[in-house]
Amino acid sequence: MDKPLILVTNDDGITAPGLRALIKTMKDIGDVIVVAPDSPQSGMGHAITIDNTLYSKKVVIDTEQGAPAEYSCSGTPADCVKLALQEILDRKPDICVSGINHGSNSSINVIYSGTMSAAIEAGIEGVPAIGFSLCDYSWDANFEPALRAVKKIVSQALSYGIPKGTVLNVNIPKSDIEPKGIKVCRQARANWKEKFDKRTSPTGKDYYWLTGEFELLDKGEDTDEWALANGYVSVVPTQFDLTAHHIIPQINNWSLNES
């Protein structure tokens, strides 16, 4: 049987070690093609390029025999997936995997994540998709202990399928040993207590650095944050229909059509 076609992308850029680790792992599962940003795009969320030109070119980073075809893209992670599906690939991929991100995309971080937005874009287009993140922001992060879990999750997703309208948000704890296991979780309730560090440039202009602290508001033991804190890989099924369906009856009780 033909091997599955796997589209690999990320938001840290095409040379990022996390992406290189993911490519290596996916080569054991199927035929890989890579379309990734030509520069870091962290925190871009689901931004797309609409007011500028978009460029893509074939690049050679891995010179080993059997290395996959790779394309760099001047746009965002979502742009990369759009371009891959519409212009680069000659058939629909069996799965899209995004990452491995340098840093957590658990809890509320999923909203801002370029890694997850690439996966969501694939999901919107009907391609099963998974975003992978390691809870280590270092460029020299050790991805090896995570790769067995990554391979297992992708293999299972290919075997069982991912329900339409859903993508998987996978986060992996920072560790020099393999995780204890894999837990299917809900997204923890949390937010960022943010502030801007105001400074003045040598020319007298004010500028700002965004800073903040992560505030976990959820003590549940069924959340992604609990799983990660206790040495487990978290898998959160994430939907991109943002409708709060359970609230519709409540809003229908408002007097919206009364004069």
Score class of each variant (00 low, 15 high):
residue 77 P to A: 03
residue 124 I to Y: 13
residue 224 D to C: 04
residue 154 V to T: 07
residue 253 N to G: 12
residue 167 V to K: 00
residue 29 I to T: 09
residue 32 V to P: 10
residue 20 R to F: 01
residue 199 R to K: 15
residue 192 W to I: 13
residue 198 K to F: 03
residue 249 P to V: 05
residue 89 L to K: 13
residue 186 R to G: 06
residue 111 I to Y: 12
residue 212 G to V: 07
residue 65 Q to R: 14
residue 113 S to L: 07
residue 53 T to V: 12
residue 95 I to C: 04
residue 33 I to K: 13
residue 34 V to S: 03
residue 3 K to A: 09
residue 204 G to V: 07
residue 61 I to W: 05
residue 148 R to A: 07
residue 252 N to Q: 14
residue 68 P to C: 04
residue 181 G to Y: 09
residue 100 I to Y: 02
residue 46 H to A: 15
residue 70 E to K: 12
residue 259 S to H: 09
residue 224 D to R: 13
residue 88 I to T: 09
residue 188 A to H: 07
residue 30 G to C: 01
residue 255 S to Y: 00
residue 214 F to V: 05
residue 82 K to T: 12
residue 171 N to E: 08
residue 235 V to R: 11
residue 211 T to M: 13
residue 43 G to F: 05
residue 40 P to S: 08
residue 218 D to F: 05
residue 179 P to H: 02
residue 234 S to T: 08
residue 177 I to F: 10
residue 183 K to F: 00
residue 234 S to F: 06
residue 171 N to S: 15
residue 246 H to I: 10
residue 256 L to E: 10
residue 52 N to M: 08
residue 45 G to I: 03
residue 199 R to A: 11
residue 209 W to R: 14
residue 196 F to R: 02
residue 94 D to A: 04
residue 1 M to E: 08
residue 90 D to R: 13
residue 137 Y to F: 10
residue 72 S to H: 00
residue 167 V to T: 14
residue 203 T to Q: 14
residue 6 I to S: 08
residue 133 S to Y: 00
residue 180 K to R: 15
residue 229 A to L: 05
residue 240 F to S: 10
residue 250 Q to S: 13
residue 16 A to C: 04
residue 28 D to N: 15
residue 235 V to K: 08
residue 116 M to K: 09
residue 109 N to H: 11
residue 5 L to R: 04
residue 245 H to K: 14
residue 98 S to G: 09
residue 70 E to R: 15
residue 73 C to S: 15
residue 84 A to I: 12
residue 39 S to F: 09
residue 70 E to M: 15
residue 79 D to W: 06
residue 253 N to R: 15
residue 188 A to D: 05
residue 114 G to Q: 13
residue 119 A to I: 01
residue 124 I to R: 15
residue 103 G to F: 00
residue 153 I to H: 01
residue 110 V to N: 03
residue 86 Q to M: 10
residue 221 E to P: 04
residue 149 A to M: 01
residue 47 A to F: 11
residue 51 D to R: 07
residue 227 A to Q: 03
residue 55 Y to S: 15
residue 92 K to V: 12
residue 21 A to F: 04
residue 199 R to P: 02
residue 233 V to G: 07
residue 80 C to S: 14
residue 163 P to C: 01
residue 107 S to D: 11
residue 101 N to Q: 10
residue 223 T to D: 08
residue 240 F to L: 12
residue 125 E to M: 14
residue 23 I to A: 05
residue 150 V to P: 05
residue 173 P to Q: 07
residue 255 S to L: 06
residue 93 P to Y: 06
residue 12 D to K: 05
residue 92 K to W: 00
residue 245 H to T: 07
residue 122 A to H: 10
residue 77 P to Y: 05
residue 53 T to N: 03
residue 102 H to P: 02
residue 241 D to G: 05
residue 175 S to V: 09
residue 110 V to C: 07
residue 107 S to Y: 02
residue 104 S to A: 15
residue 16 A to T: 00
residue 198 K to T: 10
residue 146 A to T: 13
residue 177 I to K: 11
residue 26 M to V: 12
residue 176 D to E: 13
residue 198 K to P: 01
residue 138 S to N: 09
residue 228 L to M: 13
residue 97 V to A: 04
residue 191 N to E: 09
residue 27 K to Y: 05
residue 176 D to L: 10
residue 46 H to L: 00
residue 113 S to H: 09
residue 197 D to S: 14
residue 1 M to V: 09
residue 67 A to P: 03
residue 149 A to K: 06
residue 92 K to H: 00
residue 115 T to G: 14
residue 17 P to V: 02
residue 205 K to G: 00
residue 77 P to W: 07
residue 166 T to K: 01
residue 246 H to W: 02
residue 80 C to W: 02
